[in-house]
């Protein structure tokens, strides 16, 4: 089995997010990017399958600033190969726009499985795994949490709300939108990272172009603060004291004499 994993860089939401002056996009000039965490899980699940079954894992990404390091880390974690796909645009491509590039890469690689994260924080116009699956005529399963092989078949667990799950058997090829790997993301030692830090990541052209997302984002803005919390000010000690008083006042705890 040849598993191809799509990795995408997305804004790091733990940092400040600034908008452009016209409010049409993120100000990407100073934006911190990181690997989409669901893609991280998709890569991990692919690597677990490699260890269990000898599958080949190829990590791919749309060529953009920062993806070389992401792909080098994928190699350090155990991916067999990695490359970038040349694209006319490298900034905030919607999944629908980039899907033809990934689909073409999969076709040219003769891949059996496509893994990527179930979603990114930017998927306003749809999600990558089902788009790629539909373009290749492959079935797609999303919110996947565990994958294993049974001969030529794939057994994939899909998660639902409330903690329920179902397992599906599907003959490869299939596109999977991974939510959670079977195990926590592996730790990679610094020595392993250094080993791949100088690895040149090849850029490949594929026989497809970016397509229109068919919908247009008009504006981005911060949600209204109408329902904002009443803030308790102060350091941790002060907040602890005020919270204790609040919980007593609301009858949520009983006052214990000092």
């Amino acid at each position: 089995m040849h598993i191809v994993v799509a990795l995408r860089l997305v804004p790091d939401l733990s940092g400040d997010i600034e908008l452009t002056a016209d409010g049409a996009d993120l100000d990407r000039e100073w934006l911190d990017l990181k690997l989409n965490e669901f893609d991280d899980h998709a890569l991990e699940e692919a690597l677990l399958l490699k260890e269990q079954s000898g599958a080949k894992v190829t990590a791919i990404a749309i060529a953009a600033d920062g993806v070389d390091k992401t792909l080098q880390i994928a190699l350090a974690r155990g991916a067999d190969a990695a490359f970038k796909i040349a694209a006319d645009s490298d900034r905030g491509l919607p999944s629908r726009a980039s899907a033809p590039l990934f689909a073409a890469a999969l076709r040219e690689l003769g891949a059996d499985l496509f893994f990527t994260g179930v979603q990114t924080p930017e998927d306003l116009f749809g999600h990558l795994a089902p788009f790629v699956g539909a373009q290749l005529g492959w079935p797609s399963l999303n919110a996947v949490s565990k994958v294993r092989f049974d001969g030529a078949d794939v057994l994939a667990q899909q998660e639902y709300s409330g903690g329920a799950a179902a397992t599906f058997r599907v003959a490869a090829p299939v596109a999977l939108g991974v939510q959670t790997a079977s195990r926590p993301i592996r730790y990679v030692a610094g020595s392993q990272l250094r080993q791949f830090a100088a690895t040149k990541i090849e850029t490949r052209n594929v026989s497809a172009n970016i397509r229109s997302a068919l919908a247009e984002r008009l504006a981005l803005r911060r949600p209204s603060r109408a329902g904002s919390a009443t803030m308790i000010e102060g350091d941790a000690e002060s907040v602890a004291g005020q919270l204790r008083a609040l919980l007593i006042e609301r009858g949520l705890i009983k006052e214990i004499p000092a």
Partner: peptide, 11 residues
């Protein structure tokens, strides 16, 4: 979008 930090208006 963006983890609930932003509201997108689209058409």
């Amino acid at each position: 979008v963006y983890g609930g930090k932003l509201l997108a208006v689209s058409n």
